[in-house]
Design a protein around this nucleic acid. Structure first.
Length: 486
RNA sequence: GGUCCCAUCGUCUAACGGUUAGGACAUCAGGUUUUCAUCCUGGAAAUCGGGGUUCGAUUCCCCGUGGGAUCACCA
């Protein structure tokens, strides 16, 4: 649905693989800005390099965006009545049209050199330690372009360019960066430099949002806008997302993996969205937790975008994910979340049942930040007590104030007696049945041996929670087993 | 190397000439607690350096320094 066209933004990835984290952030910002202004958001596929194209990545990119809740008004499967397809390889006629216009104006010409000759020019310039400029070799007269050779732009004016960036203010570039770049390659496909500008124009894009790596190419873009005699859109330069070291750009190793891998690791889309939005942008106040997409859209502003790059802080992402799990998931969803993190090996344990997991998921969620940590805790045996009778050592049952484990036996037996008549419906009701006794005799004296009898472990959830998870029968049995041992 | 960009606690960041430089994650200490976890309280922790401009610079300007980007028939 076309909206009020005050703002049109786009996300324009090339289908050369999965969508990485940096790309997601760019998409998110462009999407927020469009939605905030009741504008239009376009997903455009820049597939003009057939060599690098990876099959299936268009689907993959769309799936990733959908996972984040990003929706687009026009995209690969939703063409526009006005400008048609959002896939560049299907728009070759359009680029041709613009190329012809430039040729007519005398502002585009076929490159008369072979690739080898141009390379030789370049190597020569490098050897002489001076910047290579194709325009120094520009032919005196232009031949007729038959499509078999690259078509180059004749830059309308060689000058120092100055332009406004919505984030960084006034930016400049020297005339060394102004050169006769290629508009259409010998294979008939346009270059990024040409295609993206033609498309932005055709699609009515008002805000071009992209990473800072494009700043140095701006003279190219501006000279083309000038050659076409069109208005510049607004430029919004986004800072890079850096690796944890805060220097290099985020690499695969430290988080720039497929956005969907985070799903597998148990990161909630809302948490990752929240986290990524806060790298290179902030709402201007102390708010950090944005559980809802709408809040983010409302808070978003161009003035909150940062100039400098931000590191990917996985600790903060983990914290944020925990917060999102706690506040955005229903009880049912929390249980499903934990269940999906239980390794198969655990499911083989004799007392394993979903019912038991259903009683213990809150205590598990209290201790983890993502699904990976559930798996890890389970695999290291942290929760084995819940699914199999523990091996209880008498040594461990001994409370620090006791002389030996046997000292605890009468207390355990009394505890067992109290629990026989206890209400096991919640940890609190179990606690109620034991609390008076524990306070009278000593909490550590009663609760430590009980907890160890039930779990066999030095560290575990509190005994009331454990007893509730195990149920009355199993609880009493385990206490008996422990008593028999000491 | 040329051109360009950036610079506040370890990290993400607030401050848009006047603040004891604030918040969050991480970290440390204390408290609650039978242990772990949770939770609560508190602490330590930053304006890259040097010059200007100004009554007054985190903030404006210049020079350094450091980091980054870019110089393709890739995007």
């Amino acid at each position: 649905m076309p909206k009020t066209n005050t703002v049109v933004t786009r996300f324009a990835p090339s289908p050369t693989g999965f969508l990485h984290i940096g790309g997601v952030r760019t998409a998110l910002f462009a999407y927020y800005w469009a939605r905030k202004n009741n504008g239009t958001f376009i997903l455009r596929i820049e597939d003009t390099d057939k060599e690098r194209e990876v099959a299936g990545s268009i689907e993959q990119i769309q799936n990733s965006l959908r996972w984040f809740g990003v929706t687009w008004d026009y995209g690969p499967n939703t063409p526009s009545e006005n400008f048609g397809s959002c896939i560049q390889s299907e728009r070759l006629e359009t680029y041709k049209k613009y190329a012809d216009t430039l040729i007519e104006k005398g502002l585009a010409y076929p490159d008369p050199y072979t690739e080898g000759e141009v390379t030789a020019f370049r190597d020569n310039a490098i050897a002489e330690k001076r910047p290579f400029l194709y325009r120094n070799h520009r032919p005196k007269t232009f031949g007729v372009w038959d499509g078999s050779r690259p078509l180059r732009l004749k830059v309308p004016e060689i000058k120092r360019y100055t332009w406004q960036d919505e984030v960084r203010g006034e930016l400049t570039a020297g005339e060394e960066m102004v050169d006769d770049f290629i508009l259409i390659k010998a294979d008939g496909y346009p270059t990024y430099n040409f295609a993206h500008i033609v498309d932005d124009l055709e699609m009515g894009v008002t805000h071009v949002m992209r990473g800072e790596e494009f700043i140095s190419s701006m003279p190219k873009f501006l000279s083309l806008y000038d050659a076409l005699e069109v208005e510049y859109p607004k430029f919004v330069t986004l800072p890079p997302i850096l690796g944890p070291d805060g220097k290099k750009k985020l690499s695969k190793r430290d988080g720039s993996k497929d956005a969907l891998e985070y799903d597998a690791d148990g990161y909630l889309p809302s948490a990752l969205r929240n986290f990524l939005s806060l790298i290179g942008w902030n709402p201007g106040d102390d708010r950090e937790l944005f559980f809802d997409e709408q809040e983010l859209i409302e808070a978003f502003s161009l003035s909150g975008i940062q100039k400098s790059g931000g590191a990917f802080n996985e600790d903060k992402l983990r914290w944020m994910n925990k917060e999102h799990i706690a506040t955005t998931l229903s009880d049912h969803e929390k249980l499903a979340y934990v269940l999906s993190g239980v390794p198969d090996t655990i499911k083989l344990l004799p007392q394993y049942s979903e019912d038991r997991v259903g009683k213990m998921y809150p205590t598990i969620l209290e201790r983890i930040h993502n699904k990976l940590e559930i798996k890890e805790a389970m695999e290291t045996g942290e929760y084995d007590w819940a699914f199999t009778s523990p091996e209880v050592s008498a040594e461990l049952i001994k409370w620090k104030n006791d002389e030996s484990a046997a000292t605890a036996r009468p207390r355990l037996e009394h505890t067992q007696k109290l629990l026989q008549n206890a209400d096991f419906s919640t940890p609190e009701t179990i606690k109620a049945s034991l609390w008076a006794y524990a306070e009278q005799v000593g909490k550590g004296e009663v609760l430590w041996p009980l907890r160890v009898s039930l779990t066999g472990r030095e560290r575990s959830p509190d005994p009331f929670t454990v007893a509730h998870i195990l149920g009355k029968e199993e609880t009493l049995l385990r206490i008996q087993t422990a008593c028999d041992k000491i």
